[in-house]
Design a protein around this nucleic acid. Structure first.
Length: 455
RNA sequence: GGCCGGUUGGCAGAGUGGCUCAUGCAGAGGACUGCAAAUCCUUGUACAUCGGUUCAAUUCCGGUACCGGCCUCCA
């Protein structure tokens, strides 16, 4: 198995520390508002990696942690804007997020820790950094001292000189070095906070991931993931904290970063009017189409979202489910996932290549004649698709799912049309078909009779 | 200004030092069908640009142009 490791800036063979417990940590969202498309892409990508790891090492030998940031100034701002309590905001947003993930068929990680439940661990980490001489107190803050870490910047490939040249860092006068970042900051009495050796306050953003990953995965683990925008400063600073607090440990061996999501070729942002939340998009297309769409581009590349692409993904799924619909009564056999697909996914999660083989498997299934061939092709397809987290739905529900009481009426019209066809009254038969088409119902004749689908 | 990444056929998007070939959509032709739909078969079109390395480069190296990301909160 191979992964592109940001640390080395190249693809390298993945060798876990312990094959019996492969450990992965992926940065999750800050829960202050509905999750947007970018918040959806990263978990889908790492969900595929999680599935591939489970397939290779065994489900019980993989531990996947993805956090929820529920203490952050953005949440505080939301509270000021809306007047809703912090708790109300984070609980509601958390629920939205979990629901969105479920719709996208993202498997639950083994742990979804919330930052506020690990405050003690964070305080301990800060104490450790102070003790080791990597942090200092200033005006109620505790700051990480980047000068105490000679190779600070090694993950993102930045030198201190460059970062100062950037000159966009807000320089508080209590900082020894402009690049020093906050580990702990004071809170006003009406702000969320916890008592600490440095007074009432709250953790800095980078601290939580270091604390939670150590607690749940140990001080050295295998994979740390996230969007590429997190490389600096978030992951750089996590590295700094964790490595300085735990000398001799490796923190994460493989850093895996997904490309940014764009909309119509440019970065998604509210000011450009091309900002979409997950639920907004799911009003226009099934969640599975969005999931498939994410997988059509290699995760490491920037991903360009368009509604045309979403529609195309939906049509691709129609094709796939069409093939499955024909064999809905064929039982699965003992076939396993296609080796080509396993290999493609184990080669740095090459989902576009894997999908090309899915097309090939669908083609094979469509051409299968004997029941044994059908069973084999169907099973191979489904097992392979499971690694990608697609094709989990019942094909009939895929095509008819959103149709409720009308089903009986449709069946009645189909019977009428069959009668008309029998009498060679094609004008009436075509009228029935066209009327249904206008309602979004497509009829398909086959030697076995007529079936219908909702577009 | 610094640091990354990209540029493949009408579109989306893999991959490779030489081979018949990604794949999908769209297009063209055909089979099937009362006509369709679905499905199957056949088919055209490509590797930004300029140099270098090489027997051979879309693929490796260097320059140029263009595009995008990060350097501030961000998945």
């Amino acid at each position: 198995m191979y992964l592109f490791n940001t640390l080395k800036r190249r693809k390298e063979e993945f060798v876990p520390i312990d094959e019996n417990n492969v450990r992965m940590y992926v940065c999750g969202p800050t829960v202050y508002d509905r999750a947007h498309l970018g918040n959806a892409k990263t978990p889908v990508v790492f969900d595929v990696l999680f599935r591939v790891l489970c397939n290779k090492y065994g489900k019980d030998h993989v531990t996947y942690v993805s956090n929820i940031t529920d203490v952050d100034d953005k949440i505080l701002n939301k509270h000021k804007e809306t007047g809703k309590s912090i708790r109300e905001i984070t609980e509601q947003t958390y629920q939205w997020y979990v629901d969105d993930m479920a719709k996208l068929n993202v498997l639950s990680p083994n742990y979804r820790p919330r930052a506020t439940e690990y405050i003690n661990e964070m305080i301990e980490l800060v104490e450790l950094l102070l003790k080791e001489g990597h942090a200092y107190e200033a005006q109620g803050h505790v700051l990480f001292d980047v000068d105490s870490m000679p190779n600070y910047g090694f993950l993102s490939g930045r030198s201190m000189k460059e970062m100062i040249a950037g000159a966009r860092i807000e320089v508080a006068d209590y900082k020894k070095n402009p690049a020093d970042f906050v580990l702990w900051k004071p809170s006003d009495a009406d702000q969320p906070g916890w008592n600490s050796p440095w007074g009432y306050g709250r953790p800095g953003w980078h601290l939580e991931c270091s604390a939670m990953s150590s607690k749940l995965l140990g001080n050295s683990f295998d994979i740390h993931g996230g969007g590429s925008d997190l490389i600096f400063p978030h992951h750089e600073n996590e590295c700094a904290q964790s490595l300085c607090a735990h000398p001799g440990e490796k923190f994460a061996n493989y850093w895996v970063h997904g490309g940014m999501l764009m909309v119509d070729g440019v970065k998604m942002s509210k000011s450009l009017g091309n900002f979409y939340t997950i639920d907004q998009v799911l009003e226009k297309a099934p969640a599975e189409a969005l999931r498939l769409l994410f997988l059509t581009t290699h995760y490491h590349q920037p991903f360009n979202f368009t509604f045309e692409g979403l529609e195309a993904a939906k049509q691709t799924l129609d094709k796939f489910y069409n093939a499955l619909l024909r064999v809905k009564d064929v039982a699965c056999d003992s076939s396993v996932a296609d080796e080509r697909i396993v290999n493609a996914l184990e080669d740095d999660i090459n989902t576009p290549l894997a999908l090309s083989y899915i097309h090939d498997l669908v083609n094979t299934l469509n051409k299968a004649e004997s029941d044994a061939d059908k069973a084999k092709a169907k099973t191979t397809l489904l097992k392979s698709a499971e690694l990608l987290g697609i094709l989990w739905q019942n094909p009939e529900e895929w095509f008819k799912g959103s149709v409720g009481d009308e089903a009986q009426e449709i069946e009645k019209l189909i019977a009428q049309r069959a009668e008309a066809k029998k009498n060679k009254d094609y004008a009436l038969a075509d009228k029935i078909r066209n009327d249904l088409k206008e309602q979004g119902i497509i009829l398909e004749d086959s030697p076995q009779g007529t079936t219908w689908k909702k577009i």
